[in-house]
């Protein structure tokens, strides 16, 4: 079996009383695209920062290639942000922007060559056409390619992409997603993409992990998870994606609770349609849903949902 590139072990990150990450196990394998799906307030961003070594765990650990993650891994772990216009320094040329990562790590090789290679890989060809341009002189799609070239120039092992296409035009979106997938397939890079866009996951991800209030509540191969979601939260999310047709909409009331006041029992129970419909009662697990926290999904799990009802049905069935 291949060694995992990143291993997150029983990670807890608290900010005062707020439990932003509240028990997460996760492995990212080389050469895979893993989509971390969740709404604002689910703890996705905190988790990503911990993988970069920028936020210290309250307990548990993050291992990058077997060693505890810290900011010194940055050449191996690069980040692509949502808004390319905000991420690029308007006073620098494309070549200076892309070379920045090399300068930070005091790269000894041929800088010009490395920059040109990164630009071509990101689909900006021929690279000479772009080297001396400023961000405002190129289009939005090209800007996001420059961001990706800047991230790829240090030949990282892991790319963390935070909503990489959310601020791009619809017609450009496919090109950028295709580029990310292609980089993974040709270089063995791993991409952890944070998104609330399930269509993006369907387009490029090998696996999906769904986060809710500081926990991963369901994980699985993309097709299995999106074709037949098990956790009631995943089911509800999928039902409201306009891109899923013919599914009855299940609009949850309210919003993700405050991480300072994570509900007792299953953290999803106050909004859970299975509990609300009386189904938990019929399965004889309603007390459990309200009082007992489902076990944290292990990093080795291929397909699992942290839900008492799913477990009860599996046992009965």
């Amino acid at each position: 079996m291949t060694e995992a590139l990143v291993v997150v072990e029983d990670l807890h990150i608290h900010f005062g009383a707020a439990r932003a990450v509240d028990g997460v196990n996760l492995a990212v394998m080389p050469g895979e695209v893993l989509a971390l799906v969740g709404e604002s307030g689910s703890g996705k961003t905190t988790l990503i920062r911990a993988i970069q070594g920028l936020t210290h765990p309250t307990s548990g650990k993050v291992l990058f290639e077997g060693k505890e993650a810290d900011a010194r891994h940055l050449p191996d772990v690069q980040m692509v942000f949502q808004d390319p216009t905000g991420a690029l320094n308007p006073r620098r040329t494309v070549s200076e922007i892309v070379a920045e990562g090399l300068r930070i790590e005091k790269f000894k090789g041929n800088e010009a060559e490395a920059v040109s290679t990164a630009l071509s890989r990101a689909g900006l060809r021929p690279p000479e056409r772009f080297l001396r341009r400023f961000p405002h002189e190129i289009s939005g799609g090209q800007r996001q390619r420059v961001v990706i070239a800047g991230a790829m120039v240090t030949e990282p092992r892991l790319l963390l992409a935070d909503e990489p296409v959310a601020s791009l035009d619809a017609s450009i979106r496919g090109e950028i997603l295709g580029l990310l997938r292609n980089l993974v397939d040709t270089t063995g890079l791993a991409v952890l993409v944070v998104t609330h866009d399930l269509g993006l996951a369907w387009n490029i991800a090998d696996r999906v992990a769904v986060m809710y209030l500081g926990r991963i509540i369901e994980v699985g191969p993309t097709e299995e998870l999106l074709d037949s979601p098990k956790h009631p939260y995943t089911k509800a999310l999928l039902s409201v994606v306009p891109e899923t047709r013919g599914m009855e909409q299940q609009i949850l009331s309210g919003e993700i609770p405050d991480p300072k006041r994570i509900p007792s029992g299953c953290r999803f129970h106050p909004r859970c349609p299975v509990l609300q419909s009386g189904e938990s009662e019929r399965l004889g697990i309603a007390e459990r849903c309200r009082g007992e926290d489902p076990a944290i999904i292990s990093a080795a799990a291929t397909r699992e949902a942290a839900c008492w009802a799913v477990k009860a049905i599996a046992v009965a069935g």
């Binding site: 619809a170 450009i172 997938r181 369907w202 387009n203 891109e243 899923t244």
Partner: peptide, 20 residues
């Protein structure tokens, strides 16, 4: 550009337009 989830054709095959 926004795939229908479950549609095999768009799986691992994001679709877009060239240019801006």
């Amino acid at each position: 550009a926004f795939p229908t989830i479950g549609d095999r054709e768009s799986r691992m095959n994001p679709s877009g337009l060239k240019g801006d």
